[in-house]
């Protein structure tokens, strides 16, 4: 038996909106730790890892570890039917082939339940080791989204370079080139407007903008995004999900042949 009650149901709506275009089908894993998902896109170039810790739920009952295969587009369709202020409860029976999403309006005057068929998904679960990064950039998520959108109108790839001058996003295409430099800025009124660059050593990596733009669909989840770079590793683009967890996107770089 599984029963997870999330008062801030809009978080789950936003999570689904941010992953449904990247991944078609995925297993949601439920354990004492929390509600999690790990899945790769169909080209195996990007990976998404979501964790919503059990403490973040108002009520969290998970009698035994459960893996539920879901079509993310269908799940997003159902969650779109929840109001932004609704409380969302996810319910499933052990060994059952459906999951139920229950939506309660804040005043309890409307209660809806949507039952969705589960599916068997044969997915590979990857071990992601804790890593030291050469550079970690924390910046306003809306700024990062704007940069990715702007650059994708010029080119297909972005070179992200971190030096002591700041972080530079560059692209080139048929019509020309573009460079956007963001410098560290911690003298801001609101902490969410800060740009913080922690650099161990300079790093420069190339990525497909199509994926970066897809990751920025998570922008409504968090005012800040963290971009962790190392020449030996995929970039990690992380958005915090309120106080309860994170959604991390991993993207393998493009290398010169």
């Amino acid at each position: 038996m599984l029963e997870l009650r999330l008062v801030q149901g809009s978080l789950l709506k936003k999570v689904l909106e941010s992953v449904k275009d990247l991944v078609n089908d995925a297993n949601f894993d439920c354990s004492a730790t929390g509600f999690s998902l790990q899945a790769m896109d169909s080209s195996h170039v990007a990976l998404v890892a979501l964790l919503l810790r059990s403490e973040g739920f108002e009520h969290y009952r998970c009698d035994r570890n459960l893996s539920m295969g879901m079509n993310l587009n269908n799940m997003a369709k159902m969650l779109k039917c929840a109001g932004n202020d609704d409380i969302v409860t996810i319910k499933a029976d052990d060994g059952g082939d459906t999951v139920t999403f229950m939506f309660e309006s804040p005043t309890q005057d409307k209660i809806a339940d949507f039952e969705m068929k589960l599916m068997d998904i044969d997915s590979e679960h990857l071990g992601i080791p804790e890593a030291e990064f050469q550079a970690i950039v924390r910046m306003p998520s809306a700024e990062f989204a704007r940069i990715c959108k702007d650059l994708s109108s010029i080119g297909d790839t972005v070179v992200i370079s971190v030096t002591k001058e700041g972080v530079k996003f560059s692209t080139r295409g048929d019509i020309g080139t573009a460079n956007i430099v963001c410098r560290q800025n911690t003298t801001v009124d609101k902490p969410e407007d800060a740009t913080v660059i922690e650099m161990q050593e300079p790093v420069s990596l190339t990525f497909a903008l199509r994926y970066m733009n897809s990751f920025t669909k998570a922008t409504p989840l968090s005012n800040q995004v963290t971009i962790s770079l190392s020449s030996e590793l995929p970039v990690v683009v992380e958005y915090k999900v309120a106080e309860m967890g994170y959604i991390r996107f991993y993207l393998a770089p493009k290398l010169e042949e």
């Binding site: 170039v45 990007a46 990976l47 679960h125 071990g127 992601i128 995929p234 991993y250 290398l255 042949e257």
Partner: peptide
Amino acid sequence: PCLQKKILGYFNED
């Protein structure tokens, strides 16, 4: 020309 690496080249299956 750039070669797009795959995630599986970095992380192993559990």
